Amino acid sequence: MLLVSMAIFTILRWDDSKKDTPARLILGPMATQDSIDRKTEELGFNDPIPVQYLAYIANVFRGDLGTSYIRAESGMSLGATQDDIQTQRASVMRLMTGSLPMTLQLAAVALFIAMLIAVPIGVAAGLNQGHWPDRLAVYLSSIFVSLPNFWLGIVLAFLLTAQLGWLPSIGYKGFAYTILPATVIAIEMAPLFIRSLSVSIAAAVRQNFIALAHVRGIPSHTIFLRNVLRNIAVPNLNLFGVQIGALLGGVLIVEYIFNYPGFGLLTVQAVSQRDYPVIQGISIISSAIFVIANILVDLVSAKIDPRVEL
């Protein structure tokens, strides 16, 4: 998390230009050069980058992620006077606490839909290697992985919203607005889970202890639930942890397409408006989600299979 924050902080300062300095973004295009110079000094932008970073990270450890340069407490961009901007600028923490629950909801629904797609297809393919369920899994995975999420989002919005009117798609006025963007993300993620499930199940059922269990007369469904699932749980959980990063990236693009008010849309707007504090805050929180999710996956994996601790 520290490395991510340091990299983002440094890159943003290297990208700084004379035309759109943070001070000018805060004070507005009509500000005089003297006021811009004073504001730059006040913000500490004349200090070396390491000094700026240490001051920033000290505030982060106190729970202060800074304030947006150009966004109001309502979340809207400010185009007001200098005094209005000084009194109305939103805290980065408030902006993120407003958008993070939306993104978590979208991610959770996407994962649920991805599992609905991947589990039955992957399990059937793993238990029937070389037969039509296995070939069906390969064909569907090839199709899903070949669909760009931005293209799929536009097509689904046109068909299901504009043409058929089955689902809303643009903005957010209730849970129904989550289903379509979540489906786009789920279709993008499903092939990896299908492949992982089918391969791991096929490998597990070929193990000697599975054959021995059949010889002992243990029912097939009991063997699958108690032996096969336990043996495939760890590698698939690890894949899930790795996919958290891909999920966050997919959410960013899909939220922008559907104007979904989550982390992704906030990120795109912050980058386009050069709102450094918001970009920095998002990078820290996103990396924290990734790190925490992978730590939890490791803990659950060790609980399922104690050999992982070795």
Rank of each mutant, 00 (worst) to 15 (best):
282 I>P: 01
123 V>C: 04
19 K>F: 15
176 A>N: 14
177 Y>C: 05
5 S>G: 12
142 S>P: 08
155 V>N: 07
114 A>M: 10
174 G>S: 04
283 S>Q: 11
123 V>I: 05
291 V>A: 15
99 S>D: 11
62 R>Q: 09
192 L>V: 13
148 P>E: 06
115 M>K: 13
150 F>N: 12
175 F>P: 06
148 P>R: 10
302 A>N: 11
261 P>S: 01
193 F>K: 03
18 K>H: 15
225 L>P: 05
90 A>R: 01
172 Y>T: 11
253 I>E: 04
306 P>G: 02
269 Q>E: 08
99 S>W: 02
98 G>A: 05
122 G>R: 03
58 A>E: 13
133 P>V: 03
143 I>T: 15
80 A>K: 11
220 S>R: 15
202 A>C: 06
164 L>I: 07
205 V>M: 05
224 F>Q: 03
34 D>N: 15
195 R>W: 07
295 I>N: 07
307 R>P: 08
285 I>S: 02
214 H>V: 14
168 P>R: 10
216 R>G: 12
209 F>L: 05
178 T>V: 11
97 T>N: 14
202 A>L: 05
260 Y>H: 02
222 T>H: 12
70 I>G: 05
234 V>K: 03
224 F>T: 03
7 A>I: 13
281 G>Q: 04
140 L>H: 08
50 P>L: 02
79 G>H: 13
97 T>P: 04
118 A>T: 06
266 L>P: 01
154 I>G: 02
105 Q>N: 12
233 A>K: 02
218 I>D: 03
197 L>K: 00
232 I>E: 00
44 G>D: 06
166 W>N: 03
221 H>G: 12
29 P>K: 13
56 Y>E: 04
293 A>R: 12
161 T>P: 03
134 D>S: 10
80 A>L: 15
232 I>G: 00
134 D>W: 04
199 V>D: 07
222 T>D: 14
145 V>N: 12
202 A>F: 04
264 G>D: 01
284 I>K: 01
15 D>S: 15
173 K>S: 15
37 D>V: 11
128 N>G: 06
240 F>I: 03
17 S>Y: 10
260 Y>C: 01
105 Q>R: 14
308 V>L: 06
30 M>E: 15
305 D>R: 09
128 N>Q: 09
251 V>I: 12
272 S>K: 11
